[in-house]
Simulated assay, not measured.
Amino acid sequence: MLKQQNELIQLIGRHTSKNGTIPTLIPSLYFSRYSGVTEPRYGIQNPSLCIVVQGDKQVLLAQERFFYGPANYFVASVDLPITGQVTTATSQNPYLSLKLEFTPSQILEILQESDLDFKAKKNLNRGMFVSSLSLPLLDSVTRLVRLVESPNDIPVLAPLMTKEILYRVLLEPHGEVLKQIAIRGSNTSRINDAIEYIMNNFDRRLLMEELAKLANMSVSSLHRNFKEVTAMSPIQFQKQLRLQEARRLLLTETTDATDVAFQVGYESPSQFSREYSRIFGLPPIQDIKQLKENYDDTKNA
């Protein structure tokens, strides 16, 4: 395993000349590099497999913390609002990682073609987990990453290798999490329908009765199952989406906090400011000012 991890360090290092996350020639594969410990970064973790080959990272989902490094791999099976932070990295030994995105249809295709149990268990699982990295999984990931340096092979081999990687994860102890999201009609799949609705309508008033009808559940079952998968209620999930989008708008557009509050669905600017401060630690204007100053300092370093 050490030999393959060292190979991944070399491969990813050659294709990441600066800090940040970059796409590769394989559409679903991304590399990340950071030369130092980062501030907490807020964003949406889409369905994906993540492997750190050098350094360490922590991810916060609601009040739960997930730590992972080169001995582990990390999977999100649904879209989740998270806070991520690189916790171990230096300029000499930068944080290096990869992310492979996937869809429920890819998981379903593997289940249909394999001898794996096609029935999802009744009990739901959290839509995010960290597990120990096995040699078969690491081997399949290494072969996929090698393709970045063989562009002509990517169209034919990348889909096959991606399928092998997902198959390996399905065989692992937490494979049930991926199986649940792929099987239509399972509770996890129905919760994913509710997640997608909130993602697409986060700026609108959330009516629990309509959301429960969409998920084909009672309101009480929706709340219970939604929290089991996402670690938060539908309202808390929507709030995270609203505040992350508000922060993005404040950083990238010339607009004031009141306008942004209304854009993301708040009816009260004062409530927006209170909830923004609770999540990000500072009122909107002060937070954005500090973020821009930190960015300028990093850029000029």
Rank of each mutant, 00 (worst) to 15 (best):
K3C: 11
G13N: 07
R14P: 01
H15E: 14
K18A: 11
G20F: 10
L25C: 06
L25W: 02
P27F: 04
S28E: 13
Y30T: 08
F31V: 04
G36Y: 06
P47L: 09
S48V: 09
C50D: 08
C50L: 11
V53H: 05
Q54M: 10
Q58D: 13
L61V: 12
Q63V: 07
E64D: 14
N72F: 07
Y73S: 05
V75Q: 01
S77W: 03
I82C: 05
Q85I: 04
A89M: 07
Q92F: 09
Y95R: 02
L98H: 01
L111D: 05
K119Q: 14
N125F: 11
S131E: 15
S132L: 14
S134D: 10
L138R: 00
S140M: 09
V141Q: 01
R143P: 01
V145E: 03
V145P: 00
L147R: 01
S150G: 04
N152Y: 08
I154R: 03
P155Y: 12
L160A: 15
E164K: 15
E164H: 12
Y167V: 06
R168A: 14
V169C: 13
P173Y: 09
A182Y: 00
S186M: 05
T188R: 01
I191D: 00
I191Q: 00
I191L: 02
N192M: 07
N192I: 02
R205V: 13
M208C: 06
L214K: 04
M217T: 01
L222T: 00
K239T: 13
E245G: 03
A246I: 06
L249R: 10
D256H: 10
T258C: 09
V264D: 00
Q271R: 07
S277Y: 04
S277H: 07
R278N: 08
I279T: 09
L282A: 08
K292E: 11
N294G: 02
N294L: 13
N294I: 11
D296T: 08
D297Y: 10
